[in-house]
């Protein structure tokens, strides 16, 4: 749902592409016929529909007042099989890409004072927020961490536009992890905190902010937990030991769906790997765990799985069904 307005789905032209940092490309997207693009507010993101079963979300990081183009920045992920690899390999100037949205789960609320915390590519949704906060006359500070200075996108633009007082750069190889205790240790009643970055940073910031007034912290996180690409891109087999069936699970279907279609009853509820209802004992094979429940240790034990989202990391799994 989340339909605060009608969503558009349009093919856009990659008008420009530049390297914004090590492993990060910034793309400028325009309408092929030069038409005006839908309006958006800071914090908004769009879906890039890269292939039939590969859709990825990217924050808009340009200027909302510019209705002729959109800007996104994409980090090349190390495993190299997912959406980021597609963007880096295929989306060159002159190509088109299908875009859905924009949508905003991370809107900037009015405040006198802001603390912006960015980790790595998490800087993207914050960029237009800095402009908006400046335009509104608010006081703000950005604390921006990354692995190394060279990996941090838009650094030069930020310093040129806002100066070193407001923009605090903290590459990890020089400064270590962000000192969240110093930043967030004492709740400030009139300050809103906006944070975007990797999961562990968000978790740590959420924890520090638990003593802050309710509503002070805003984070960009997709629930349930974002999962990378499956270990196997193709089909695999599941053998159901109790039922004596062997079934093929194609890449676009879950084990749960395939097993239910074969007439075998499996209890399930949330169907997104968070509630734990469809837990199934694993008798053989290696599991590609994609749930939000098991600890690393439990995953490694490889004796149980959640069939609504988890898949096989081998050609054939044997399940106690």
């Amino acid at each position: 749902m989340k339909s605060t307005h009608e969503e558009s789905e349009i093919d856009l032209l990659v008008a420009d592409r530049r390297v914004a940092a090590d492993g990060v490309v910034a793309l400028t997207l325009r309408h092929p016929a030069g038409e005006e693009l839908p309006a958006w507010e800071p914090g908004a993101h769009v879906d890039l529909i890269l292939t039939e079963d590969l859709t990825r979300q990217y924050s808009l990081c340009g200027d909302p007042a510019d209705r002729s183009s959109w800007q996104i920045a994409v980090l090349q992920e190390s495993d190299g099989r997912g959406g980021s690899a597609y963007v880096h390999d295929k989306l060159n100037p002159g190509t088109t890409v299908r875009v859905r949205g924009p949508r905003n789960h991370f809107p900037l609320e009015p405040a006198d004072r802001y603390l912006f915390i960015a980790g790595g590519i998490g800087i993207t949704p914050l960029l237009p927020m800095l402009e908006a906060a400046t335009a509104a006359g608010a006081e703000w500070q950005l604390v921006y961490g990354g692995r190394t200075a060279a990996s941090m996108a838009f650094v030069a633009d930020l310093r040129a536009a806002h100066g070193d007082d407001r923009v605090v750069l903290r590459p990890q190889d020089e400064h270590g992890l962000l000192d969240l205790e110093a930043l967030l240790g004492a709740p400030a009643g009139d300050t809103l905190v906006y944070c975007c970055g990797p999961g562990p940073l968000l978790d740590a910031v959420e924890e520090r902010c638990s003593s802050w007034p309710s509503g002070a912290l805003h984070t960009e996180r997709f629930t349930p937990k974002e999962q990378g690409e499956p270990v196997l891109s193709g089909a695999f087999e599941v053998e159901l030991a109790q039922s004596g069936l062997t079934l093929t699970v194609p890449p676009d279907r879950s084990i749960l769906e395939v097993v239910e279609d074969a007439g075998v009853q499996v209890l399930s509820s949330c169907q997104e790997g968070t509630c734990g209802t469809c837990e199934t004992a694993v008798l053989g094979g290696q599991v590609d765990h994609r749930d939000s429940l098991l600890t690393d240790e439990e995953k490694a034990a490889n004796d149980t799985m959640f069939v609504c989202v988890s898949r096989a990391a081998c050609p054939k799994l044997v399940l106690d069904l």
Binding site: E260, S269, C270, C275
Partner: peptide, 14 residues
């Protein structure tokens, strides 16, 4: 297959 019913709620408050 009653999976997906909302008697336990759904989403983060399930």
């Amino acid at each position: 297959s009653a999976g997906g019913h909302v008697a336990f709620g759904m989403g983060i408050h399930q």
